[in-house]
């Protein structure tokens, strides 16, 4: 771990990686996805399907497994590793039934006193006719509200892209970590450029001012920890990245599981309550 930390530090010392370059690392087609990480981090993993209302969304994976022996519920957005996987997971853009599946599994975890670990990796919630019909807005809103009061520890981790409300829906948690090159943003840089400058091709420029990197999120008080990646990005050494993730999860879960649930819920509320800058 210490070795990796210094490795990452060396990289940033050589030359500052720009936010846009980090985005390119995150979008590298060889970047490990949750399907790569699960066997490296969890044992006895069972995938659980369906929202019990409408269907099973391939963009969100859920299940139960063990993290160093402790049963945990895992909820994750699924990037595909090839065109077939991406077709099945809709390029990690969930529909409402995906968020409803996530919430179902979160409540199941609450019932059995299992902590929840959420992995965020999405360009955003899906924008389409069916998504609107089935209440994309409501599904995300419900997720935000119910994760806030979920009576079990919740840890979230941004693996790659954390795009907008679709990412935040799995981001209401006791502690948020980001992989070093991951991004977290209010809208995709492309969408940002398109709205503010009417020119989606100014993506790189948008990256420059949006403050979307893990370091930005840390300094804004939105993320609590940056998990180091091997030089050049997680795809260069998925095993080491997985070890780093597991180490963070074990450490953080031990800390959160030791807390009284009311204390935990108050701290969770206040973690978000204090975000915002204004004068009065």
């Amino acid at each position: 771990m210490a070795e990796n930390m210094s490795g990452a530090a060396n990289v940033s010392q050589e030359r500052e990686i720009t936010p846009f370059e980090r985005l390119m690392i995150v979008r590298n087609k060889n970047r490990p996805t949750i399907r790569d990480y699960i066997p490296l981090i969890f044992t006895d993993f069972f995938e659980l399907h369906g929202d019990r209302f409408y269907g099973d969304d391939g963009a969100i994976l859920g299940g139960i497994g063990r993290l160093e022996g402790t049963p945990v519920t895992v909820i994750a957005e699924v990037k595909g590793r090839d065109i077939y996987e991406n077709k099945a997971s809709n390029f990690a853009m969930p529909h409402p039934e995906g968020y409803r599946k996530a919430l179902r599994l979160a409540h199941q975890a609450e019932k059995f006193h299992r902590p929840v670990i959420c992995f965020i990796d999405t360009p955003g919630a899906f924008c389409g006719v069916e998504a609107e019909k089935r209440g994309q807005g409501e599904a995300i809103a419900r997720s935000l509200a119910e994760f806030m009061t979920l009576k079990t520890p919740v840890i979230s981790l941004v693996l790659g892209e954390g795009g907008s409300g679709g990412a935040l829906a799995l981001g209401v948690c006791d502690e948020l970590a980001m992989l070093e090159n991951a991004s977290y943003s209010v809208i995709s840089p492309r969408g940002f450029a398109s709205i503010l400058w009417k020119d989606p091709s100014k993506e790189e420029e948008a990256c420059g001012i949006m403050r979307i990197t893990s370091h930005d999120a840390l300094s804004l008080g939105i993320c609590e920890e940056i998990i180091p990646e091997p030089a050049g990005g997680a795809h260069n050494d998925p095993e080491t990245t997985a070890e780093n993730i597991a180490e963070f999860l074990v450490k953080t879960l031990n800390k959160k599981m030791a807390k009284d649930i009311d204390v935990l819920l108050n701290e969770r509320y206040n973690k978000f309550r204090k975000i915002g800058e204004f004068m009065e």
């Binding site: 809103a141 806030m148 009061t149 503010l196 978000f272 915002g276």
Partner: peptide, 24 residues
């Protein structure tokens, strides 16, 4: 969300929804 406040504005969604949950 207010684009000009970036990630901070996104977090207002969680903040307000959390407050709604508490009111409930």
């Amino acid at each position: 969300a207010r684009m000009q406040e970036g990630l901070v504005s996104l977090m207002q969604m969680a903040k307000t929804s959390g407050a709604a949950a508490r009111l409930s």
